[in-house]
Design a protein around this nucleic acid. Structure first.
Length: 279
DNA sequence: CATGTTGAGGACTAATGTTG
DNA sequence: CAACATTAGTCCTCAACATG
């Protein structure tokens, strides 16, 4: 698979690099300003305006009139406050959802990885059997007919602000909406599947794990989602060990999302952030 | 298997903003 | 002021694709 798009050489002096090395991607993001798209954002970076602070510090910026500068200064000040308060909504309503990866390094402490298992069938038809959630170094597992219900799910999920999934925008989230009544997940969803595709890395979760050299425990290597369906069937017929394996599988899936989120957001900021100004 | 979403592409429009 | 650049929004197609 995946000859990833080659990471182009750094187009700015190294000293500039060092400057924004430790700065979170969100502070490089100007598309939160009204009327600013990715093109104009690039223009700002090219002008040496790399961060919100840069923007506020500069008296004059080419392409930004004084009156608009004043408006943007106020907006950026608001953004800084929102970031300080941890108000993710301020940003998620101003960002396109394919740019939610930019939220990760700012909000990784409030991020939760989510992965579900079902009884099979296409999205929305079967039932959810397992919901795994992993955030703040904690694993939560909800099991059908034991502790999986709308209330418990909400209690856990809504402690967090950002959801990380693999293909969840298509599968997990719609599936939960259809099968858990009264559930509405409206938190921003950083979907790693599409993040990877944007980097020209294609394949399922397991393929990505292999690509990045992530290992799984022997007992669950080679398993896929369909195996998970079969394991649930065995468990229903009384095989308790089947459930144990299923839980282990789900936990591995869920936890690995976090590492993947880290590496992918790093690669995306290399590719689409101010480090790579050309193109 | 069914499903729905994506990015990338293009092609418009209307509006807004900047510049000399 | 005219010329230019950019954005947001709409529409459209397209094939590719990963989920359990």
């Amino acid at each position: 698979m995946c000859d990833g798009k080659k990471i182009t050489a750094l187009s700015r002096p190294v000293k500039c690099m060092l400057k924004y090395k430790k700065i979170i991607m969100l502070k490089h993001t100007f598309t939160i300003l009204p009327g600013v798209g990715t093109r104009f954002e690039r223009h700002l970076w090219r002008e040496g305006v790399f961060t919100w602070e840069d923007f506020l510090t500069r008296i004059h910026i080419p392409g930004v009139s004084q009156s608009r500068k004043n408006i943007f200064d106020r907006e950026i000040t608001k953004a800084l406050h929102a970031l300080e308060k941890g108000d993710i909504d301020y940003f998620s309503i101003r960002l396109h959802h394919n740019e939610y990866w930019r939220l990760f390094d700012a909000f990784h402490k409030d991020a939760v990885c989510l992965d579900i298992e079902t009884m099979g069938g296409p999205a929305g038809y079967g039932e959810v059997t397992i919901v795994g959630m992993y955030g703040r170094d904690q694993m939560h597992t909800l099991i059908k007919d034991i502790n999986l219900d709308s209330g418990t799910l909400k209690d856990i999920l809504f402690q967090y602000k950002l959801i990380i999934t693999y293909y969840g925008r298509v599968f997990d989230i719609p599936f939960l909406h259809k099968s858990i009544s009264g559930l509405k997940v409206d938190m921003p969803n950083y979907d790693l599947c599409f993040a990877a595709r944007r980097l020209n890395i294609k394949g399922g979760l397991k393929k990505l794990e292999a690509y990045f050299g992530m290992r799984r425990e022997d007992s669950i290597t080679g398993m896929d989602g369909y195996d998970a369906v079969k394991l649930w069937g065995k468990y229903i017929e009384g095989d308790e060990d089947a459930l144990k394996i299923l839980l282990k599988y789900n936990e591995a899936d869920t936890k690995n999302l976090y590492q993947l989120a880290e590496v992918l957001s790093m690669m995306l900021s290399r590719e689409y952030g101010p480090e790579n100004i050309n193109r």
